[in-house]
């Protein structure tokens, strides 16, 4: 007979600046903790295996696939979901730009695209190169090709890609203006 493993564990998660206490199965992914236990359903499950990007969240400012990590491993981290990016009435410039450029159709991959784009701009601001960079030694500058490469971890089957690229360019300019 198998050992009787402790199934549940209480944990604290800090999401969008709010501390949550949870008593959940150890196996719960960060994504499912949000969707099934905290009512934060903005982050989507498209594949549950890190193959689509719909679940993208920021952890300590960096984008990750929240489906491929255990909630319990994120105690003490600052987690941001789409709900923490902006809300109707107070949209983030990235959300505004997606709206105006029609950077989505069905909308299912959209929260992941938006959170990923926000995280991606942070990476560019930090000078990270990409596969599309002609010279990895140099700092990074945003271009259409750079956005396309850096956003390739976010699938969109409706195929809003051209509009997403436009939206990111617009939002990037707006965010620099606001900064």
């Amino acid at each position: 007979m198998k050992r009787n493993r402790r199934a549940k564990r209480s944990m604290k998660l800090k999401i969008n600046g709010v501390e949550h206490e949870l008593d959940i199965d150890m196996r719960t992914s960060l994504l499912d903790a949000c969707r099934d236990h905290l009512g934060l359903t903005g982050s989507k499950k498209g594949c549950d295996h890190g193959q689509c990007g719909a679940c993208t969240m920021l952890v300590n400012g960096r984008r990750i696939n929240s489906c491929l990590t255990l909630a319990v491993m994120h105690e003490g981290d600052e987690i941001t979901t789409i709900e923490g990016i902006g809300e109707p009435g107070n949209l983030h410039p990235m959300q505004e730009a997606f709206l105006h450029h029609d950077g989505f159709q069905c909308g299912y991959c959209t929260p992941g695209q938006i959170v990923s784009a926000v995280g991606m701009l942070g990476e560019v601001a930090d000078g990270w190169p990409s596969h599309a960079s002609a010279d990895v030694k140099a700092g990074a500058a945003l271009s259409g090709d750079e956005i396309r490469e850096r956003m390739s971890g976010n699938l969109c089957r409706c195929s809003a890609y051209p509009n997403i690229v436009d939206a990111i360019e617009t939002a990037s300019a707006k965010m620099k203006e606001n900064a």
Partner: peptide, 19 residues
């Protein structure tokens, strides 16, 4: 070690490379 930087950047996605 540019070859290493290039190889890493050719792999997976931005999200996966962060983790």
């Amino acid at each position: 070690y540019e070859v290493l930087s290039r190889a890493l950047l050719a792999g997976a996605s931005g999200q996966l490379r962060n983790k």
